[in-house]
Design a binder for these strands. Sequence first.
DNA 1: ATGTATGCAAACAATTTGCACGACC
DNA 2: GGTCGTGCAAATTGTTTGCATACAT
Lengths: 151, 151
Amino acid sequence: MTERPPDASNNLIARAYAGGRASAQRLAVAQAVGRAAGAFTVDDLTALVRERDPGVSKATIYRCVSAMAASGYLTRIGDRDGAVLWVRCDADGHHHHLVCTSCGATAHTACPVDADALAASAPEGFTITSHDVRLYGLCASCSGRMQRAGG
Amino acid sequence: MTERPPDASNNLIARAYAGGRASAQRLAVAQAVGRAAGAFTVDDLTALVRERDPGVSKATIYRCVSAMAASGYLTRIGDRDGAVLWVRCDADGHHHHLVCTSCGATAHTACPVDADALAASAPEGFTITSHDVRLYGLCASCSGRMQRAGG
DNA sequence: ATGTATGCAAACAATTTGCACGACC
DNA sequence: GGTCGTGCAAATTGTTTGCATACAT
């Protein structure tokens, strides 16, 4: 599984940008997303891109992220210090994200919202159309590290 | 020329700013918060303050909001167009907020998160320390208005 | 008297955009 | 060749901050 088909790059771009045009920069950004450990800001992503392609401008990365979000390839899962947090999310269906507050790793969870409880406590007449659940905590490895450190 | 606000005003300031110094501006901002219908941005609040006190600077309003948030008088409940959304929240205990996407009105709900479901679907080893639930929908009056309009 | 709050404007940071140029199809 | 993507820099926007002054205590 280490060998990629010759058109792998084009496939990646097609998936990430929903049929946009292929360019070296778009490929670099899409690959950087693949190398991201979990949630990332545009700044984080810029650093990842420039590890291999130092010439890509930040404006381009912003434009790539917008395109990827529009195509559903990226999902906005929160904020960190005023910057938007993104994550590559290919899971289907309604779910939410866990974010490790220590290392930024992310994971999916099923939606833990109890619809009955929600309906019961919502005020009379209020129609709930959507919800946004963000779960924070420590991933297994950070959790272990904290415990060993005496947290 | 020491003009001292009446006791009710001092009480309001004491509650809102956790013992800070009383000033006309702080009073104006705290009163504007009281007049806010639900969630508001600093811009919204500035408009409310200036309805009655046109001279209050935005920097002061930012500083007042920070102080009120630090004292627990205001709670950050989300964002709107890149600006932070605040709400006056005097409810005790763990709860969440509904926001009407049409008029900005807010309401409390009990926490609808099913802890068992959450524990069951969280990945092995991930320790969830906190969560943030934002509920969006239409309040009773906006809901009625939409229905009447045929939407 | 002393320290705190205010106003102003400049600083800041994240993000967007206008424009000329170059690349992709 | 026409269109779309890119780079650069400037513009936007929400928010913070330095500083001198006014004010509360």
